[in-house]
């Protein structure tokens, strides 16, 4: 799962993934308009592939990239669990602070 979060930590990679989430694209289409060199794009795509977030199909000389959402499901689950954890802690913190204030009088 760390590969997922690492992959998503870079804004260019997030942009690439957003475009691929909309439709399969060639490397050139996915990278259009981005201010990154070809080798940087290659590096970003490799990181996304290593995280299992995209798959590559070869059609002749063109590589078509396909978004794979499965790793995100695990990452969303981690976030949801920890968000619940902190939400309940915030409730308890509120109750604790109120108790402390009451005992100050």
């Amino acid at each position: 799962m760390d590969k997922t979060f690492f992959a998503l930590s870079h804004p260019v990679r997030r942009t690439l993934l957003e475009r691929l989430a909309a439709s399969d694209l060639s490397v050139g289409e996915a990278a259009r308009g981005l201010a990154e060199s070809p080798s940087q794009i290659t590096k970003h795509l490799r990181i996304l592939e290593q995280a299992g977030l995209l798959a590559r199909h070869r059609e002749g000389r063109v590589h078509r990239l396909h978004f794979e959402p499965a790793p995100l499901a695990e990452a969303f689950d981690w976030v949801a669990r920890h968000r619940d954890f902190w939400r309940t802690r915030f409730d308890a913190l509120d109750a604790y602070l109120n108790r402390m204030e009451a005992t100050d009088d």
Partner: peptide
């Protein structure tokens, strides 16, 4: 807050 875990709350 989809993938970024972020919470805010005001405590009195």
């Amino acid at each position: 807050d989809t993938l970024q875990l972020e919470l805010q709350r005001v405590f009195a």
